[in-house]
């Protein structure tokens, strides 16, 4: 498809969020219960074990894959605004990740602990 923002060298979220890399984060109870449990399907038990199974599931991989494709297609404007990101974050996976990094850094500057 046309559209100048199709960087061929873009990344795939599947390689960013591999189960082996992110599962250590999930053992932190604060991270798990505070940040991630609220975003699990309602019929999944809120335990670290379940969380680990979810991130290893083919359905989660499928979600990463389709979000990557959608980001590359650059049609996620409304969603990005909803997440408080700049619409330019929709021009690829890397742009999306960098925008989240910037958002976190900015929020840190504004609310120093």
């Amino acid at each position: 498809p046309e559209g100048g923002n199709q960087q061929q060298s873009d990344v795939n979220l599947i390689d960013v969020l591999t189960p082996s890399e992110i599962s250590p984060l999930l053992s932190n109870p604060e991270v798990a219960s505070g940040t991630l449990f609220p975003h699990l399907p309602s019929d999944i038990n809120r335990t670290p074990e379940e969380l680990r199974e979810v991130i290893q599931s083919p359905q989660f991989a499928q979600a990463l894959q389709s979000l990557s494709i959608a980001l590359q297609s650059g049609q996620l404007g409304p969603l990005l605004t909803q997440l408080g990101l700049d619409p330019s974050a929709g021009s690829g996976v890397e742009a999306f990740l960098r925008a989240i990094q910037n958002q976190v850094s900015r929020q840190r500057r504004n609310n120093p602990e």
Binding site: D15, L17, V31, H39, L67, E94, I100, Q101, V104
Partner: peptide, 30 residues
């Protein structure tokens, strides 16, 4: 799981990586 909207979940994991300063390394890896 198939019917679940994972975007908020994914977004929050990415934020955690960003807060821990690990996101850049993950991007390079990817």
């Amino acid at each position: 799981l198939r019917k679940h909207n994972f975007i908020p979940f994914i977004y929050n994991i990415i934020r955690i990586l960003a807060e821990r300063g690990e996101l850049d390394a993950r991007i390079e890896h990817a």
